[in-house]
């Protein structure tokens, strides 16, 4: 420990004297992959522990519904819960942002807004199971942008999207990529 303390000022002197300081830190891809792992885990747990257990397929104590606020025992759909998380994070920090988007959004504001988002969403749709990683410059800031697939994993997802009055696509099947999670980190 003493050696480490002694080495620290030496490093600082070397850097101050023109020695090359090595860049350290987490790779953007590892960072966004890790964020996505947490998001996935939370969404899975909400689906499994709340929706499946307490919803119509379980105790039927809650009604998972797009318009959950209008029902006394309504509960947000997993995708809505995911969006609320994204909105809460946006209020907290600009260090990263995330959103759930689709080439066929039920709500048009959830479509891609940048070229990289569009390319990424197209890529994950054409290559099921693959992620997309890219870089883009927005407002003079360079960003690392990752797009992860969002898959139709349950019949209610498919039925709701195909039957929604505002849906631009009505032929989703179980296992289809319906959209993607876009995570953006300034570089």
């Amino acid at each position: 420990m003493k050696k480490l303390v002694a080495a620290l000022p030496l490093c600082l002197v070397m850097v101050g004297c023109g020695g090359e300081a090595k860049q350290s830190g987490i790779e953007p891809k590892v960072y966004t992959d890790s964020l996505f792992a947490v998001m996935k885990a939370d969404r899975t747990n909400y689906t499994k522990m709340i929706i499946k257990r307490l919803g119509p397929a379980g105790a039927s104590a809650i009604v998972p519904d797009e318009h959950w606020e209008d029902k006394p025992n309504g509960a947000p759909l997993p995708a809505q819960m995911f969006r609320y998380g994204a909105e809460a994070v946006a209020e907290m920090t600009s260090d990263f942002s995330y959103s759930l988007q689709s080439l066929w959004p039920v709500n048009s504001q959830n479509g891609p807004r940048t070229e990289v988002e569009k390319v990424g969403l197209t890529y994950i749709n054409d290559n099921p199971g693959e992620n997309f990683y890219g870089e883009e410059e927005l407002g003079g800031v360079k960003y690392f942008t990752a797009v992860y697939p969002d898959v139709a994993v349950a019949a209610p997802c498919v039925d709701c999207h195909n039957g929604h009055k505002d849906t631009p696509r009505t032929d989703f099947k179980l296992g289809d990529v319906m959209g993607g999670v876009v995570i953006r980190v300034p570089m």
């Binding site: 792992a37 899975t44 689906t47 199971g129 693959e130 992860y148 697939p149 898959v151 994993v153 296992g175």
Partner: peptide
């Protein structure tokens, strides 16, 4: 063709 979409990602566990 069928499983990768979820099993490459850990979708829904």
């Amino acid at each position: 063709q069928n499983c990768k979409v979820c099993h490459a990602q850990g979708i829904n566990g």
